[in-house]
Structure formats: structure tokens, C-alpha cells
């Protein structure tokens, strides 16, 4: 009798614990229509089959809990149009052929997901989303406008180097504030670089960071930056990249 009682109590207690702990999660909240529509797009296309959200789901592709704040809407919109252009030699995301409206709704859902309670608590350290390969961001302007001044042309070339192979700085560094990819955000780098090392100009600091990344490791980040830009970029390209980065003021 005692053993049967133990078994019955164990089973009932197990189910009771599950119900009590999860009861708070069953409180309903009103979703904005575009978020609800985005959630439908998410479900209909089986996104959870490959991606995780709040750590749950398929493990074939990155967790998307913080993807909206990490990448921003423009990048994600571009990515969903042509995912193959971003990581050509790695795992490929199928093209789902979403309409503009569906893409906007999906982005609204991802933005909403980033702001929910579970995203505040998890993960303990932001999971970096990055990858190699060329980045063909449509927002990058053409660099040979005939009427551009030499300075403007250098900035445009630098911006292109920032976003395209072989450097593809944008893979690891965001230009948005507080957006952490692999390396620190370069938002306001022109201002920050000037203050970082006493007696060193912003231009020198940035040049050193490109050519000898280990000399300036920002606290909380690994020494993981490529150290071969002196070989992969020409002197002119490095100068153009620096000119572009010096436009990034707070």
C-alpha cells in the first residue's frame, strides 16, 4: 500500500510541479497584428525546424532570440531575399520566397521576440552570429560617382571594403550602437578611438587595430580578429577603410 501511495504521490506531484511552475506562462498577452502575422509566417515555413528561439528548436542554424538587435532589419531583409549570397560555402538557408509584407511581419515578430522576458534572461552571453563569405548589402552605394570629391570617393570605397570581401568587417563588427556580433560595435569609433590610448590619434589607433589587432583588445572580447589584413588589403584600401571609419562619430 505504501509503495503504491509513493508512486501515486510521485506522479501527481510531478504533474502538479509542472502545472504550478508553468502557470505564469499561460497568461495571455495581446499581440500587435503584424507580430501575430509574423508568427504565422514563422510557423508556416517551419523556421523552428532549423533555428532555435529561446534555446528551443532545431539546432541546424543559429539561435534567433537576439537576431533582430544583432543584425537589424535591413540586414535581415537582405538576408531573407538571398541567403546564399551571405555564406556561400557553408550551410545554406532555403529561399522561402516571402512577399515584402510577409518579410516585414516576420521581422516584426523577431523584433517582438527579442524584447520578451525570456530574451532578457537568456542566453547568459550573447551568441555571436557570423560567417565568412561576401556580403552584398544593397545599401552599399556605388563608389565611382564621377562628381564625388576625392574625400567622398575614399569614404565610399572604405564603406565598400567594410562590407565586402576580402575584409567583410561587417561580419564581426556592427555600426549600430550596442549591437554585439563577434567583435565590438564600431558605432562612434572615430570618437572612441581618439580617446582610447593617450597620445595616439584616432587614425593611428584604427590603423594599429587593423594591422595588429592583438595590440588593442577591447575588454570582454576575445583576441579573435584576423591578423592578415596587411597581406589581404593594399595600403590604399586600408587608407580608404580608415577614412570611412573616421566618419563614424557619436
Amino acid at each position: 500500500m505504501v509503495k503504491r501511495l509513493f508512486f501515486a504521490i510521485s506522479v501527481v506531484a510531478s504533474l502538479f510541479i509542472v502545472v504550478i511552475v508553468t502557470s505564469g506562462w499561460f497568461l495571455s498577452q495581446d499581440l500587435p497584428p503584424e507580430v501575430a502575422a509574423g508568427y504565422n509566417v514563422w510557423q508556416e515555413n517551419g523556421c523552428i525546424g532549423c533555428h532555435t528561439l529561446y534555446g528551443q528548436g532545431g539546432a541546424f542554424a543559429p539561435d534567433l532570440t537576439h537576431i533582430y538587435e544583432q543584425r537589424g532589419a535591413d540586414y535581415l531583409r537582405e538576408f531573407m531575399v538571398n541567403p546564399n549570397a551571405f555564406h556561400p560555402d557553408q550551410r545554406l538557408m532555403p529561399r522561402f520566397g516571402l512577399t515584402v509584407n510577409e518579410t516585414d511581419n516576420l521581422l516584426a515578430f523577431l523584433d517582438w521576440a527579442t524584447k520578451q522576458e525570456p530574451a532578457v534572461r537568456w542566453p547568459p552571453r550573447l551568441i555571436a552570429v557570423s560567417g565568412s563569405g561576401s556580403l552584398t548589402v544593397a545599401a552599399v552605394p556605388e563608389i565611382t560617382a564621377p562628381e564625388a570629391s576625392p574625400q567622398d570617393a575614399a569614404i565610399a570605397r572604405g564603406r565598400a571594403i567594410y562590407s565586402r570581401a576580402p575584409a567583410v568587417c561587417s561580419t564581426c563588427h556592427s555600426l549600430e550602437p550596442e549591437v554585439r556580433l563577434v567583435g565590438p560595435s564600431l558605432y562612434g569609433i572615430a570618437t572612441t578611438a581618439a580617446e582610447r590610448v593617450s597620445g595616439q590619434s584616432a587614425e593611428d589607433y584604427i590603423r594599429t587595430s587593423i594591422l595588429n589587432p592583438s595590440d588593442h583588445i577591447v575588454e570582454g572580447f576575445p583576441d579573435a580578429m584576423q591578423k592578415n589584413f596587411a597581406e589581404t588589403l593594399s595600403a590604399d584600401e586600408i587608407n580608404d577603410l580608415i577614412v570611412f571609419l573616421l566618419t563614424q562619430e557619436r
Binding site: P62, H87, R91, V182, F221, A224
Partner: peptide, 14 residues
């Protein structure tokens, strides 16, 4: 690699 060191998802997968 991914959660403690901070290496990116795809790099870790490689």
C-alpha cells in the same frame, strides 16, 4: 566555443 569563448555560430560548427 560558442557560449563561453564567444566564437560565432557558423565558425563553431566548422
Amino acid at each position: 566555443l560558442e557560449r563561453i569563448v564567444g566564437v560565432g555560430y557558423l565558425e563553431t560548427q566548422t
